[in-house]
């Protein structure tokens, strides 16, 4: 009945993108990090991170590596997951302005628009209040970032940005999945990773009981 002793094992998709920053943050928070490039790397994971990167490239490499279907299955079955930027796109159900053959994992009922703010010159940093995070606003870096254009009924919107007078969600949660349009991993902002590990801990406790 006691909580498991070993450190939580968290996979980081390591096919492309800013894997190192996520891995460093998770290690610092006490997790054992597994870089995931092949289906067998998914074994024994307690949580998962989809990093920032180029979502069209990641979508292709997920398919060629044979990871796409087993990962989608694990996530659909409730493996706790955090996705940032490209990771948000991959977690969604529909991608807007994507490549015509781009596949996404469909874990969270979101329609996500790629490069919603425009090209790199429109990339920006700003302070952002995120519901449920204590300790003040998050300093968020948006790099050719996506936004959510449609969120399903079971999706909780934790933060939004304004574009043309409309509020568009940039942090969403549904079940054990959190999708974030910006890059907490680039600013040393670890509260969203802590949330992931809390989710992992509560699932492990539930499973052990």
């Amino acid at each position: 009945m006691s909580a498991p002793q070993r450190a939580p094992r968290v996979g980081v998709l390591a096919l492309q993108g800013d894997v190192r920053e996520h891995a460093a943050m998770l290690s610092e928070l006490g997790a054992e990090v597994v870089e995931v490039r092949r289906p067998e790397d998914l074994e024994g994971l307690d949580g998962f991170v989809l990093p920032g990167g180029e979502s069209t490239t990641l979508s292709l490499l997920l398919q060629s590596s044979g990871l796409f279907d087993p990962l989608a299955e694990r996530l659909a079955a409730g493996l706790p997951v955090l996705g940032t930027c490209a990771g948000m796109i991959l977690l969604g159900r529909e991608v807007l302005d994507g490549r015509s053959d781009q596949r996404v994992l469909g874990v969270v009922d979101l329609s996500v628009r790629r490069n919603a703010f425009g090209r790199q010159l429109e990339s920006f940093e700003a302070d952002l209040d995120v519901e449920g995070l204590e300790g003040g606003p998050v300093h968020a870096v948006f790099i050719r970032a996506p936004v959510v254009e449609r969120a399903g009924e079971d999706v909780e919107v934790l933060a939004s940005v304004e574009m043309g007078g409309v509020k568009l969600p940039v942090v969403c949660r549904s079940g054990a999945a959190t999708a974030v349009a910006f890059h907490p991993e680039l600013t040393g902002e670890d509260r969203l990773h802590r949330l992931l590990l809390e989710e992992v801990a509560s699932r492990r406790k539930g499973a052990g009981a």
Binding site: A86, F124, A126, E162, L186
Partner: peptide, 27 residues
């Protein structure tokens, strides 16, 4: 709750290096 459009800083060092970070592992 949400940031206004005027509170955004563009063209910063972090934003410039950030895009390079996102291209890592790619071609």
């Amino acid at each position: 709750m949400q940031t206004g459009e005027n509170d955004r800083e563009t063209g910063t060092l972090r934003v410039k290096r950030g895009l390079a970070e996102m291209l890592r592992g790619g071609v």
